[in-house]
């Protein structure tokens, strides 16, 4: 009996998939795309620094993204760009509240407790924007330095502006666009594609 022929459509799609894989992993293409799409750092004085949540493990260990954003916020505070540091981040399936973990580290690093605002309620970027806006209004300000990943900044900025805040973007680089190792480039591709899908989703449901 003759062998079943290969599925032509699947083979064609496979050729496209492997070509895309090769381009993303072994050429600087994704770095160039990322640099074109991502927000450009433009930090300036503001009423508060808002550091968005990015995840922590059940034992309270901050994710790599969370730590990078947190350090970005600390550096802005140290540079004297704002008098308050609003730390965001909820609990993830029973983990300690990310914002509180960050606040504890900030205090240990010498940031005055009076300058730290802990906001652990926001589960989505939109909720974080609304909660941060309420906090900033209570503090008597409107202009915030927004700290999140370069990929996430565009979407986050829209939510924060919609919540009535004036946003100064302060993106942190979570994966360098100049990554030269194939796995670094693939990680960057994952972030870029993930954010593109997120933007598409929020556009479809009319929230962006």
């Amino acid at each position: 009996m003759a062998r079943r022929p290969p599925l032509r459509a699947a083979a064609f799609l496979g050729a496209l998939t492997l070509t895309a894989f090769a381009l993303l992993a072994y050429t600087p293409l994704i770095g160039a795309i990322s640099q074109r799409l991502d927000a450009v750092p433009d930090p300036g004085p503001a009423d508060a620094i808002v550091v968005l949540g990015a995840g922590s493990a059940r034992d309270g260990v901050l994710s790599s993204s969370s730590l990078r954003r947190f350090v970005g916020g600390l550096l802005l505070y140290r540079r004297g760009l704002a008098p308050r540091l609003i730390l965001m981040g909820p609990t993830y399936q029973g983990s300690p509240i990310e914002a509180e973990t960050r606040a504890a580290i900030a205090r240990e690093l010498g940031i005055p407790a009076s300058a730290i605002v802990v906001e652990g309620g926001g589960l989505t970027t939109r909720q974080e924007a609304e909660l941060a806006a309420a906090r900033v209004r209570t503090l008597g300000g409107r202009r915030v330095l927004l700290v999140t990943s370069a990929q996430h900044m565009h979407r986050a900025r829209r939510f924060f502006e919609r919540a009535g805040l004036e946003v100064v973007p302060a993106p942190v680089i979570e994966v360098s666009p100049r990554a030269e190792s194939p796995d670094g480039r693939l990680e960057l591709a994952r972030l870029v594609i993930q954010e593109a899908l997120a933007r598409l989703y929020y556009r479809v449901i009319g929230q962006l």
Partner: peptide
């Protein structure tokens, strides 16, 4: 050659 086509088929099915 047919083996490489099977690889393409597998990659396409994986994507689907």
């Amino acid at each position: 050659r047919p083996a490489l086509v099977r690889l393409l088929e597998w990659a396409g099915l994986t994507a689907v």
